[in-house]
């Protein structure tokens, strides 16, 4: 699941080297946290969150196939 988010994010941003993804798992719930360069935030979120929401839909399907529930957060770099 991490690699799905990584692949999509790296394919969309201008600075793929600054993409990092981590997974926090609690039971059957997985929180995937995506971090990209500040200038790339708009590309992975999209207008009205459209890109992030599409990615959430695919992530949900991928997770369900492993009996998991996944959520996606997009974080700004510190």
């Amino acid at each position: 699941m991490k690699s799905l988010v990584e692949y999509v994010a790296r394919s969309l941003v201008d600075s793929p080297n600054e993409v990092s993804v981590r997974e926090v798992r609690r039971g059957s719930a997985v929180n995937v946290i995506l971090r990209v360069a500040k200038s790339d935030m708009g590309r992975v979120i999209g207008k009205n969150g459209r890109v992030a929401n599409a990615l959430r839909v695919l992530l949900k399907v991928a997770a369900a196939r492993q009996g998991l529930r996944a959520t996606l957060d997009v974080e700004e770099p510190r």
């Binding site: 999509v8 969309l12 890109v51 929401n53 599409a54 990615l55 839909v57 399907v61």
Partner: peptide, 24 residues
């Protein structure tokens, strides 16, 4: 599962493919 309710999954897939191909 690739279609999803109201083709939600299919449309999400299509949208991302459009974006990624456009970027490439």
């Amino acid at each position: 599962v690739l279609i999803g309710p109201h083709a939600e999954t299919l449309n999400a897939l299509q949208y991302l493919v459009n974006l990624i191909l456009g970027k490439q």
